[in-house]
Amino acid sequence: MMLRASSDATGSATDIHDVIADEVDDPVTSALTGLVDAAFGNGDLPSARQRVLEVLGPEALVTACSVIGNFEKMNRMADGTGLGLNDEQMEGLADIRSELGFDAFIVD
């Protein structure tokens, strides 16, 4: 939801589908998703860092790493407490959930 809202607000071409895409054409998006993947053990982390440095610079690398740490934390806060989406959030995300196939994970 924040990705869509911020992309709309800034006119960014960042695509919601890039969140789960295996291959991404845009070099900036590809560098960032490659860094996250490598941090999760899917790829060579030093090479992924170098790519972010080359494409986006040192400040971006630091922020990307801090956001990775932050969402490792947020995800555990949500999953460790059974936090779900409220009705308003579910409604607002209906199209994205459907497009990205997340509805398959909903348990009644």
């Binding site: 960042t14 890039d18 960032l32 971006a60 990775i68 969402f71 999953d79 994970f105």
Partner: peptide
């Protein structure tokens, strides 16, 4: 250091890999 959409892309990718 990153634009807001770029931060959200990273956040979304992390959450996806954690299946959160």
């Amino acid at each position: 250091g990153l634009t807001r959409p770029q931060m959200e892309l990273v956040a979304g990718r992390v959450s996806s890999l954690n299946e959160c």
